[in-house]
Nucleic acid binder design. Sequence first.
DNA 1: GCCCAAGTAGTCAAGTTTGTCTATCATGGG
DNA 2: CCCATGATAGACAAACTTGACTACTTGGGC
Lengths: 199, 199
Amino acid sequence: MGGMSSPTRLVVLGAVHQFQPVHGYFLRRELMTWLVDEWANIQPGSIYNALRSLEQDGYVRESGTESDGKRPARTSYTITPAGEVELMRMLRDTLWNVEPFDTQAVMVIASFMFILSRQEVIAGLEHRISKIDAIVLTNGFHIEDTARSETTPKYVREIFELSTARLKAEQEWARSLAERLRQGEYSFADDPREERPRR
Amino acid sequence: MGGMSSPTRLVVLGAVHQFQPVHGYFLRRELMTWLVDEWANIQPGSIYNALRSLEQDGYVRESGTESDGKRPARTSYTITPAGEVELMRMLRDTLWNVEPFDTQAVMVIASFMFILSRQEVIAGLEHRISKIDAIVLTNGFHIEDTARSETTPKYVREIFELSTARLKAEQEWARSLAERLRQGEYSFADDPREERPRR
DNA sequence: GCCCAAGTAGTCAAGTTTGTCTATCATGGG
DNA sequence: CCCATGATAGACAAACTTGACTACTTGGGC
């Protein structure tokens, strides 16, 4: 129906949330400094498309166009309440769903985790850490499968070796981040303004 | 003009090279067992499109359609001489070009390295190993940049930490594979049939 | 004072990907 | 013996992505 979850939509919606009211060209500049074109394959053109598509779905709204001199007018966007809900849904989905070869998920999480609560991100990271143990095991079985298969070339095995190596690196990183979050690094939506943590 | 390099084209052209004469549905089945839909994001539909597009560019050629009973006829494809040249070009390009966030490149190399020569693959892996050292260094400077930037959120830093962790894992894997290739693991286009390695 | 390179803001056609749909054949359980 | 399920083989509309293009402004070198 109205557009599934995709890295592009999530990144653009998250960036609108963060910088609103914001026009396409600002997002384009800002996201390029994050190198999203490299780690999420988001080219400038896709940003404008994502904005139109998110608007059609009612997740963002035009909030005025201003034109400076005779330059092309720029349209500003704001996130809607429905957009906030959808953003949380997509983020949560990305945080808790661990796919063996999805290397972008964690990048997106790193970029927008502050929108969730510190507690949830830590819990999600811990879930990811143990899920990776499971995937590494299944990779082992895949390796045995390819060894037995007649048509599948032998070196497809390397794909799983590589996947395992990368996942272990990601696991190390997740452990380190979770630990640092527990010690209060970065600030989150739910952080108390001052004082000791509530409860 | 006639279609740039892309993982989809490379994988499909490589698979035609390997299994020719071959029809779309065979590729679809075979490539799914390699889990290309997961590590290269190649969905069945894209395979048929890649075949048509490669045919238009003259890299593959229809080599007969056979129909079994009244089932949909299946069209077989063969690679052309121009296709062999293009396949080598794309593979070589993928082997020697190291992009910091391109996680698919190495997967493709693992799948089709046997088409190149053992010597070239080993040399390419060694180049990759030292290139990764350089990228890890530049990641460090990117981290300093984001620390200084006003708009860029602080945790964008995590993206580079993660990239570095993954690259080091890839480096370990590349070292291990290069070593094993030197000791004669897997077979390559240029391997002598028997006897000691020529030189 | 003039010119050109770079920046601003976005559109658009052409190409690619996705998921769903069609239509036939095989098979095995009840 | 019948019919539901799954495999076979591919087509296609809708959505998304890409890279080139428009059209104006600003800044800096000479």
